[in-house]
Amino acid sequence: MNWRTINVDLFDPESPANFDISSLLPSIPSVSASEVQTLSSQIKQLLRGGDSEGALRGALENAPYGGDAQAKDVHLATVVETLQSIKQSDMSPMLSRMYGSEGGPETLDVLMKYLYKGMAHTSQPSSGRSSMTPQATGGFSQIQSRGGGEGGGQAMSVLLSWHEKLVEIAGAGSIVRVMTDRRTV
């Protein structure tokens, strides 16, 4: 037996391999899929009413960290839809206003998380997506139609221009926080 390949940590009762990391982190309340669904329709209502900043803020401040993968996908769709509805010329002023407000830097960090998640999603081939979301929900079907091909490119370009504007305001620190933060979206 090659002793170099033995995983010594398994024999150590104090090893982190035998230890649940989640007990170290601040607890995250769990969120059900129906709550995310309700939130999504509230945000769409704000969007229809023309309050896109309120819609974006509402979507980012209520990110479902404790939701399952499906709930998170539904919320991603809501955020991306909100982002797509905002004109390019409105992006920078809106981001500056949000950054300056109470809790603004954290809100923009959440936006950065959604930008990266959105980019990861739109760049996936559309065949992979169907297995991820067995039930197409109202909000999600919109992105799905934009998946692959021309539509995916368009969603990506929206996300990229948001990313550019966001880095100008929130800086590289915001990107670093997406990588370190254990509260994933």
Binding site: L25, P26, V176, R183
Partner: peptide, 8 residues
């Protein structure tokens, strides 16, 4: 003490 996003 722990900060918000749990960076090391």
């Amino acid at each position: 003490f722990l900060n918000n996003s749990a960076g090391w």
